[in-house]
Design a protein around this nucleic acid. Structure first.
Lengths: 324, 324
DNA sequence: CTGAAAGCGCTTACAG
DNA sequence: CTGAAAGCGCTTACAG
């Protein structure tokens, strides 16, 4: 055994004076080995700090299933809430989860290659990088989470249609007449959900102004909301692209001395846990993370077994709280 | 190639009419292959949906470094904030991160075995499970995050001492006389940080009442705080075991019609991002996640290279905001 | 209860 | 530019 190199099964076999497969028996709690021999082997293993190579073992056993989970920015609580659910359910079904934050990555190419090589199935939000990723992943199966357009890959989509309609009806019923939709999209064009909200409000008789934030952060949203509420004819409701932005809006309203929901109503999208902790608690269109995670794992299992890509859809649910 | 089985390098070689190492050259963008041959190989690979086995490759290349990150409960934002930082910095240094939530796991044994086999180094909060885990991990190196007592493993500790003292001084200077420490610990005995806060307050002339929550959730904290503020002689400050509990306290105060910080001051520990978004913004003892993650990765690299376990300490920092 | 042989899927020298 | 050989570290039958 070379100095500094990791011990292999052969090193342990030599140290214990047995054959390789006897070492394998001892390490894996297999039958057909005397207690005495087993102890001797385990002692030698410990002495050499022996750890079976996951590659050697995986080559013959097939290895464990590894799911590559790609999120956009773990600093938005949406990502960890989803990741938490996926990690929990994945563990129950025997998948390991390799977590990759593509939003913060300096070296996206390396991460991509890493996912391609290390994960059996990749699942995630690719956003506008979809095209490049689809190439970079090669033959590694991909499940797209809420893809913008059509996709040849498996996908789990979110459908806000019904919840958006319910929210619009609720707002209008409570007297909202000048709603502002605080959208977020890199290109400056309305996002799909931004457009859906605007359309629903219009249908219910309260045409909305549409504003675009260049980044979907609380800070951006707070800054834009602070400006909007200072105008001569301020909005009487703000529906934000996501809960994080809605929190920023709440913060701006508070600093502007506005009472929510009396002076202005605020709603977000995502259904983050934190929305129930803030003051006022946040009305939102909630995603059922459990359902998304379950669907995702079902699709992943199918892909891994060589089945063709499937598609699922999860609907948002209107959760009325204090803010709207 | 068997029906349903994954294509191997040999299948591609046969389909393309070349040898295995020519396939390897094509797949890995190595030199010494004609453009024509390469295209033919890549075509065959695509046709067969060929994906190089990470085990076959890892066996000869040594494979990528895999860090097993163990968190206690991803639903507490502390875990994802830490995970986010670790994932980001780990990616920069070429580590993959396998994320495991031990708090939510049904089958901790399987997860442990999985970690032992799949990760090169395991890092995490083991809490009261330390003993069992240390055995279960076998020879896989472990870095304990903020271990309670002494440990033979590498560790990154958090040290609240100075920040706690600064907080106590601040509270007392602002007239606090009847502080309540809302602690959390499974055994009902004061936690290390609970005791540190109590001692610091006593030193500064404001002996505190110590209350134990059985779980460190916002809900538990809210319930206990709601009771405490209803008493004849309510506390004039609450320092919570962590930010999540402090958020629960804020919520309880709000529902009780108390103004924070005028009627009662509230502080937490952790420095969660969300603390800056709530109303009022939360005073806290912040952990520098970047420093923790950097230290962790440094220790992990050392362990992987066979060096002996090291120990680091990261100090909390008092962040004064509106709530105290 | 123990061991000799074969093989998992890949890459790395080395020949040609 | 291409291929035959060896070997990475393990487990799975199969003999004894």
């Amino acid at each position: 055994m070379a100095r500094g190199a990791r011990a292999t099964i052969v090193d342990v076999a030599e140290a214990a004076g047995v054959s390789r497969q006897t070492v394998s028996r001892a390490m894996n709690d297999l039958p057909g080995i005397s207690a005495d021999t087993k102890r001797r082997v385990l002692d030698a293993a410990q002495r050499l700090a022996y750890r079976p190579s996951r590659f050697g073992r995986g080559l013959v056993t097939g290895g464990e299933r590894q799911l590559g989970l790609v999120v956009n920015d773990l600093r938005n609580p949406y990502s960890p809430e989803l990741a938490a659910t996926v990690v929990r359910l994945a563990a129950d079904e025997g998948w390991n989860v390799m977590l990759v934050d593509i939003g913060l990555a300096k070296d996206a190419d390396r991460l991509l290659a890493s996912l391609r090589d290390q994960a059996d199935v990749v699942v995630g939000y690719l956003g506008e990088r979809s095209a490049g990723w689809e190439d970079g992943l090669g033959a590694t199966p991909l499940i797209q989470l809420d893809p913008g357009g059509d996709t040849v890959h498996a996908s789990v989509r979110l459908d806000p249609t019904r919840a958006v309609d319910a929210l619009a009806a609720h707002l209008v019923a409570h007297g909202v007449r000048r709603p502002l939709v605080l959208d977020a999209s890199a290109q400056g064009a309305p996002s799909a959900r931004g457009a859906a909200i605007r359309d629903a409000l219009a249908r219910h008789g309260a045409p909305a102004e549409l504003l675009h934030a260049s980044a979907s952060t609380a800070e951006h949203a707070a800054a834009m909301a602070a400006q909007a509420v200072r105008r001569a004819s301020p909005p009487d409701a703000v529906v934000a692209f996501n809960d994080l932005m809605a929190l920023g809006v709440l913060s701006a309203c508070r600093h502007a001395g506005l009472d929510v929901p009396r002076d202005i109503r605020v709603a977000g999208i995502d259904g983050l846990t934190i929305g129930a902790l803030v003051a006022p608690t946040l009305t939102t269109l909630a995603v059922d993370f459990d359902e998304v995670a379950r669907d995702t794992l079902a699709l992943a299992a199918a892909l891994r077994d060589g089945e063709s890509p499937q598609h699922r859809t999860v609907a948002h649910r209107l959760v009325l709280r204090e803010s709207a």
